[in-house]
Simulated scan of single mutants.
Amino acid sequence: MMSLPFVLFACAIGAAWLRHRGVAMGFWVVGLLVMLVLFRFHVTEVLNIQL
């Protein structure tokens, strides 16, 4: 799940390589949004550590 933004960034690089600028920007924006959402879930997650 945490690798999803990096897969989207790789797709953006591939689309840019094939000169599909709009598709590359779409993948890049979606990758950023997914990364921010996953970071938000990670930051607000409660750790149940029992000593």
Rank of each mutant, 00 (worst) to 15 (best):
Leu38Arg: 10
Val23Glu: 02
Thr44Val: 11
Ser3Arg: 12
Met1Trp: 10
Ile13Leu: 09
Gln50Asp: 14
Val34Gln: 13
Leu32Tyr: 09
Phe41Asp: 12
Pro5Asp: 06
Ile49Thr: 10
Leu38Glu: 10
Leu32Ala: 14
Met1Cys: 06
Leu36Ala: 15
Leu36Glu: 15
Ala12Asn: 02
Phe9Val: 06
Val46Glu: 15
Gln50Lys: 08
Arg19Pro: 01
Leu32Gly: 15
Ala10Arg: 05
Val37Phe: 15
Met25Asp: 07
Val46Leu: 15
Phe9Gln: 01
Gly31Thr: 06
Ala16Phe: 01
Gly22Asn: 12
Pro5Ser: 06
Met35Gly: 09
Phe9Ile: 06
Leu36Pro: 05
Ala15Pro: 00
Trp28Thr: 10
Asn48Val: 11
Cys11Phe: 14
Ala24Gly: 13
Val34Arg: 09
Leu4Asp: 10
Leu47Gly: 05
Ala16Ser: 07
Arg40Cys: 08
Glu45Cys: 04
Met2Leu: 09
Ala12Ile: 01
Ala10Val: 07
Met2Trp: 08
Val37Ile: 15
Gly31Glu: 04
Val37Gln: 11
Ala24His: 03
Pro5Ile: 02
Met35Val: 06
Ala12His: 00
Val23Ile: 10
Leu4Ser: 06
Ala12Met: 04
Val30Ile: 15
Leu51Met: 13
Met35Pro: 01
Val46Ile: 14
Ala16Cys: 10
Val46Ala: 13
Leu32Gln: 12
Val30Asp: 09
Ala24Cys: 09
Gln50Met: 07
Leu38His: 08
Phe41Asn: 11
Leu32Asp: 10
Val46Asp: 15
Phe9His: 08
Val23Met: 04
Val30His: 03
Val34Gly: 07
His20Thr: 00
Val23Tyr: 03
Ala24Pro: 02
Met35His: 09
Met1Arg: 05
Glu45Lys: 15
Met1Gln: 04
Pro5Cys: 01
Phe41Trp: 12
Ile13Gly: 11
Val29Thr: 14
His42Gly: 13
Gly22Gln: 10
Val37Trp: 14
Ile49Trp: 11
Cys11Lys: 07
Ala12Tyr: 01
Gly26Asp: 06
Trp17Phe: 14
Glu45Pro: 05
Phe27Gly: 00
Val43Gln: 08
Leu18Asn: 02
Met35Ser: 14
Met25Gly: 10
Ser3His: 06
Cys11Asn: 08
Leu51Tyr: 13
Val30Gly: 03
Val29His: 01
Asn48Phe: 07
His42Tyr: 15
Ile13Asp: 11
Thr44Glu: 12
Asn48Pro: 03
Thr44His: 12
Arg40Asn: 08
Val29Ala: 12
His42Met: 12
Ala16His: 07
Pro5Arg: 04
Ala15Arg: 00
Phe27Ser: 01
Phe27Arg: 00
Leu33Asp: 04
Met1His: 05
Leu36Gln: 14
Cys11Ser: 12
Asn48Ile: 10
Ala16Val: 00
Phe39Val: 04
Leu51Arg: 15
Gly14Ala: 11
Asn48Arg: 06
Val30Phe: 03
Arg40Asp: 07
His20Arg: 06
Ile13Cys: 11
Trp28Asn: 05
Ser3Ala: 07
Phe6His: 04
Asn48Gln: 12
Gly14His: 09
Ala24Thr: 01
Arg40His: 07
Phe6Glu: 13
Gln50Trp: 14
Trp28Glu: 02
Leu38Val: 05
Phe41Ile: 03
Cys11His: 08
Met2Cys: 05
